[in-house]
């Protein structure tokens, strides 16, 4: 307060000392500063544009290389000299010299339905649990919520072995189906039926922001707890639930560890697991012929859905990340 009062007085000081200039000085200063600001802003934009090139170039390089014939993959030209779109067909039908034909379409399909199932189940279950934490007052609530927060910090590798043994014990690591779905794919999505710590935390924050009067009013109208959740809380929390859905779909689509542990037959593979097979099959380090154009085409096909879902749900990704950071 005192500083803002003092500043006009200080500004007038030099202006009074040099009488002829006052009408011009502020204007000249202003224009000078704004051009300097403009130049500075232009520099910022130039630096950022350079960074944009660096950050997107690996993608552009991959898309470009996926259209090149085999000898030209590493020529690093942005526009292919010879277009060779049949690389994408080779992803599905295999390279002529290789006996193994990768069921790439099955991998895409598996990743898609497992991802959707994982995302839907985790969204619903986490929302239920989050509502329980947000709405009710019950004994040991803080203790249980502390447990939720603690599991966020737990390194996944600690539970990897016992979880595998558990699935193995109930015979979900071998062949066979259960409720029309392949048994050994269950470990990739079924744990999501029981909520996930980060999403519970995220959704609880959101539910806490809903005015309690809304729930009291709906209770007066004869809602029970379930309809209160389903008719009031869940629709209002739609943005947070979409955040949960897109985050989990991404997490499921990119999951590698579980896919290696649980998926045995190549028909049941997901995209990351399959892509690793392609790399090991065609890459020379593992005895392949070095058909990198096919590996890269597969990489592009695996990454493209993520780029699309990001552009569709961009707002929600940014929202989810910012919420995560705010609670640090």
């Amino acid at each position: 307060m005192s500083s803002s009062n003092a500043s006009p007085a200080q500004a007038q000081g030099p202006a009074q000392a040099i009488p002829p200039t006052p009408p011009f000085t502020p204007a000249r200063r202003l224009s000078l500063r704004s051009t300097a600001g403009g130049v500075r802003k232009a520099i910022y934009f130039a630096i950022l544009a350079g960074c944009v090139v660096i950050f997107t170039y690996p993608f552009l390089w991959a898309v470009s290389a996926s259209f090149k014939p085999r000898p030209e993959v590493f020529d690093n030209a942005l526009i292919p000299h010879n277009w060779h779109p049949s690389n994408y067909l080779d992803v599905f039908r295999g390279v002529a010299a290789t006996a193994y034909k990768a069921p790439f379409a099955s991998w895409l399909w598996n990743s898609l339905w497992i991802g959707v199932l994982a995302a839907v189940t985790v969204t619903i279950s986490s929302a239920l649990v989050a509502f329980g934490f947000a709405y009710f007052r019950f004994p040991l609530r803080n203790f249980f919520f502390g447990c939720v927060l603690a599991t966020m910090m737990l390194p996944g590798v600690v539970t990897l072995v016992p979880t595998y043994l558990l699935w193995n014990k109930i015979h979900f690591t071998g062949p066979g189906t259960f409720l029309f779905l392949s048994k050994n794919q269950y470990p990739l999505w079924a744990p999501n039926l029981f909520g996930s710590a980060f999403y519970i935390f995220l959704l609880r924050q959101f539910f806490l922001g809903i005015p309690r009067e809304l729930f009291e009013a709906s209770r007066m109208d004869g809602d029970n707890y379930w309809t209160m959740f389903w008719r009031i809380a869940a629709p209002l929390a739609r943005p947070a639930m979409i955040v949960t859905f897109v985050f989990e779909f991404k997490a499921s689509w990119t999951e590698l560890q579980k896919a290696i542990i649980y998926l045995r037959a190549d028909q049941t593979f997901t995209i990351p697991r399959g892509l690793k097979v392609l790399l090991d099959l065609y890459g020379p380090s593992a005895g392949g012929q070095g058909d990198y154009q096919v590996i890269i085409a597969g990489t592009v096909l695996a990454t493209l859905p993520m780029i699309i879902i990001f552009f569709l749900g961009q707002r929600y990704f940014v929202e989810g990340i910012a919420t995560q950071g705010r609670k640090g």
Partner: peptide
């Protein structure tokens, strides 16, 4: 409240604290 929490309680025992 515990009915709403039950999915997580089950998951916590079976997939986190138990393992």
């Amino acid at each position: 409240a515990f009915a709403f929490l039950s999915p997580w309680l089950f998951g916590f025992v079976v997939f986190t604290s138990g393992p």
